[in-house]
Design a protein around this nucleic acid. Sequence first.
DNA 1: CACCAGGTATACG
DNA 2: CGTATACATGGT
Length: 270
Amino acid sequence: MVTIADDFSLEKTVDSGQAFRCEKLDDKTYRFISAAHVLEIEERAPTQYALSVTSDEWVSYWADYFDLNRQYRPIREKAQAEGGFLGEAARFGAGIRILRQDPFEMLLTFILSQRKNIPAIIQSVRRMADVYGEPAPGAPGLRFFPTPKALAGVTEAEYRALGMGYRAPYLVDAVSRVLDGRLNLSKLQDADDATLITALMQVKGVGIKVANCIALYGYGRMTAAPVDVWIQRAIDQYFDGKNVFLQFGESAGILQQYVFYAMRRMPREE
DNA sequence: CACCAGGTATACG
DNA sequence: CGTATACATGGT
């Protein structure tokens, strides 16, 4: 059992479009798969959560995954206090965490994501895991997202046969660059934001939006605020055509996520 | 059955 | 430089 006192909603986080390998199992229980880790977590009471993993595994992996060393409440309350659509979105999205996921998994997942709706992305990622991923020990039927090695030698034709469409050559290029070291995902942990984004965009199929998603969800760069169709719509409708997120520095990615969630889920006129 | 989906590469001007 | 268009496949 762990206590989580900060803003923390499993429901909203799972439904916030940043991770595609997490699932609501029942009213209070959720399952997350990330790299070679599986977690089931159940809300037993407000702030009280039961875990399927050891305390060590929680501390060494999942606490960082849920970004629990950062306080979201002050960020969210400050946004609410400023009002406007950003404030409403922050109130509505309270509890969303920015998940710190595996960089390689984010690279391929967000290459796959382009021009797909979220259910289709989930399906594509599951297919990748089902065909090329290792089975998760103790979790019948579940497979981890494939490693670079597991995808070595997979051809464009094979990706197309999996339903990956025109993204197939992008996947081949991404895997190839990671395997031969042209793209060193670990080393980029230490890079500044601009260097990271530029390095990621060398991969075919990785443009500015996907690069920002990888930076935010794979590297925990809260300065990154990916602009997709939903965020662009918010900018057009509520922010006078200006990208307001960039000015928020270390809170930009979090506020972006509130707005993304609000655009998709918050009842509003127009 | 149209239309769109957490975009990007490429070809233009 | 900025803008238009094709792109594979599945959801709504």
